[in-house]
């Protein structure tokens, strides 16, 4: 708990200095080469507090951050936070569904592979997940997009709703789910590998344990030995991985969202890069870091709750 707070403080400080180094001339970048009277610039410097010593500036930054005031986006001229709030639901839906699917399918795959290790099942599961694991996720997205949207025409080529449609309620939801299918499939396939490989090696470790022999000696069926004794122990590291990954995937979908023009945080990031839209990038970076910290904490709490050997934190 204390560690998480310290880390958050570190991220805040880091974020402040990173963008201070980056943004040597924030006022200048605001006008981007246009001719502006020096007096205006000076006034703005005072207005933004840039004439203050660095300590004061940091306090100012902390206050603004606490109020979720990240400035104005260069690109849209809207408050950055409003832009982000608009993008959050799309990312949460896409990344949430893909993460859950990949965690569940990947874990099941890892269990089957380990329990039947060195059989054709194991070999095909392990090698196929390694292939998906080794390709750039956005490239996988490009291939699926061309195949299923361009060539076969089964799915839309991008976006979250059909252009020009003004459906509401359930019809709108179905339309969005239809648009989400390909990006979600891409992310699920891309994330699968890690869960499969981690589950497999974790279960293989557990399979050497004596309590499994004991369970068999008691007369338990093989399936029950696996489900009641092996898997609960093998899943402990997987649960941690899942929670930690949730923090990271929020930022991991940047390129895939760009491929499918999915209007979430990832696409916002990809768009901000082109500017570069520094206020937007700064806020996104802070948000992504905060997500990782929060989910790390959740991982710790879940672990201590699942494993009786770990003291409550």
């Amino acid at each position: 708990m204390l560690g998480s707070v310290l880390t958050l403080v570190f991220v805040l400080v880091f974020n402040f200095f990173l963008f201070r180094v980056v943004q040597t001339d924030p006022i200048g970048s605001l006008f981007r080469g246009r001719n502006v009277p020096q007096a205006t610039i000076d006034n703005l410097r005072v207005a933004f507090g840039l004439d203050q010593p660095i300590g004061t500036q940091f306090l100012y930054y902390l206050r603004e951050t606490a109020q979720l005031n990240f400035g104005i986006s260069y690109q849209s001229r809207q408050p950055v936070w409003d832009e982000i709030v608009r993008a959050i639901p799309a990312t949460l839906a896409l990344v949430g569904i893909s993460s859950v699917l990949s965690a569940v399918i990947g874990t099941l795959g890892g269990i089957v592979a380990a329990w039947r290790r060195n059989t054709w099942k194991d070999h095909s599961i392990t090698s196929s997940t390694m292939v998906f694991y080794s390709m750039p996720d956005f490239w996988l997205g490009m291939i699926l997009l061309v195949l299923f949207a361009v060539v076969l025409g089964w799915f839309p080529v991008g976006g979250i709703t059909t252009a020009g449609s003004n459906e509401t309620g359930l019809a709108r939801l179905i339309d969005q789910a239809y648009h989400m299918f390909l990006p979600a499939l891409t992310l699920t396939l891309a994330y699968l590998g890690e869960y499969t490989l981690v589950t497999r090696s974790s279960l293989l470790d557990v399979m050497g344990e004596d309590y499994l022999t004991v369970a068999r000696a008691k007369g338990l069926r093989d399936v029950r030995v696996r489900n009641r004794h092996a898997v609960p122990n093998a899943l402990l590291p997987v649960v941690t991985l899942t929670a930690i990954n949730f923090g990271f995937v929020l930022s991991g979908a940047i390129a895939v969202e760009a491929v499918f023009s999915w209007p979430g945080l990832g696409k916002a990031t990809a768009d901000a890069i082109r500017g570069p839209d520094l206020p937007m990038l700064q806020a996104l970076f802070l948000l992504f870091s905060a997500a990782v910290i929060v989910f790390n904490l959740i991982a710790d709490i879940t672990y201590s709750w699942l494993d009786p050997r770990v003291e409550e934190i």
Partner: peptide, 19 residues
């Protein structure tokens, strides 16, 4: 198993399921 014959395993090993 366990009805006709049962085994007392060595306690020092991980013969008990930790969870």
């Amino acid at each position: 198993r366990w009805t006709a014959g049962a085994i007392v395993f060595q306690g020092a090993l991980h013969a008990l399921n930790p969870v």
